[in-house]
Nucleic acid binder design. Structure first.
Lengths: 187, 187
DNA sequence: GACAAATTAGGACAACCGTCCTAATTTTCA
DNA sequence: TGAAAATTAGGACGGTTGTCCTAATTTGTC
């Protein structure tokens, strides 16, 4: 029993990811949802309001995903769960890049008011990663390591979308795993 | 004595970078150049034609930059020249990301015909980096190392545009330099 | 100085954009 | 069952988009 508002948000989320925010029109979303264009304003008063809802959806989804990964006993294994979304979502990432990174980049160029809110998805990952690195005993280096892992993942996503090369993605995931092992020798 | 066509290309290059390709209109370019909108089609028959010219401009600029770096005697130092564009162009990158990466990402989402051509800028960097790593004696690992450096740089650019944190950029550049030293110990 | 070519400005064009309004329909519930 | 509320379709709106046309102006050349 998903409400029309939810359906709009879900479809907009997909379209914003696959085609970009600017390139997605009201008509595109209306067609995907199967409602008339004019009816829209009963659910959202503007396109920006839809963007806000999409960002909140992504924030909630991300938090749920992070909570699930926290079930893992070993913090190192938790971090690997994060790194491996590059493999899990490989085909989508090779086609459209990372949803977080590409939206952040687009909203930055548009100087869109929702940019800081979109970056909060990064914050969720960052905070969670800091927690894991702290648990591994990396103290004041935890934040640096968290941003490092985030950045490496973003770089892989950009190059994956440029070249569509699964071997590169796998090699970089392996390299990140090796780097993690360098940080924390498993005795 | 720059021709109108050159001026259009230069202004479009800046606007595409700072605002995005899709978000930049003919009117925006016309205003920046200082000519009427209708006059445009005497120089470019379509917006895509302007994009092609911009990409070719970037290809030429990139090649020139790589040639200049090749003057450096030590291949390791050449690679560092590449890494340090993150510092040189820091403020622009924090505002708009990497021009190569963001255009590639946008054109991928638009399924634009010019996407492969835009990726050729990456190819220039890649080929050049492969040459440097080969000169350092990394043989069959040269290509992997080249893509690794490219990816790391892209990741830094994405995160820089998200957080506008110069310290993060500097830390990542240092980390990349340290990684390079790990690869090739300087005795 | 005359004439052809290159370049220009300005506006027309159809299509689409985000937004908004209205009137009809469906749903809810006392 | 009937009235109130929620939801819907369809279209109008002003503005902007990329594209194209025409007529005027500038430029270059003999």
């Amino acid at each position: 029993m998903t409400s029309t508002r939810e359906t709009i948000t879900l479809q907009a989320d997909t379209l914003f990811y696959e085609n970009g925010f600017e390139a997605t029109s009201f008509g595109d979303i209306a067609k995907a949802v199967g409602i008339s264009r004019g009816n829209f304003y009963h659910h959202f008063k503007s396109k920006d309001a839809i963007l806000d809802a999409v960002i909140e959806l992504r924030l909630a989804r991300t938090q749920t995903m992070l909570d699930n990964w926290s079930a893992e006993a070993d913090p190192q294994e938790r971090i690997l769960s994060f790194v491996r979304i590059l493999i899990t979502n490989q085909s989508k990432i090779m086609a459209f890049g990372c949803p977080v990174g590409t939206l952040s980049s687009e909203l930055a160029k548009l100087e869109h008011a929702a940019h800081p809110r979109a970056v909060e998805v990064f914050d969720l990952f960052k905070t969670w990663l800091v927690t894991q690195f702290t648990a591994l005993g990396h103290g004041d280096k935890a934040k640096d390591h968290a941003l490092h892992v985030l950045g490496r993942s973003q770089g892989v996503a950009v190059m994956a979308a440029a070249y569509q090369d699964p071997d590169f993605v796998q090699a970089e995931v392996d390299a990140l795993e090796a780097w993690l092992n360098t940080l924390t020798p498993h005795n």
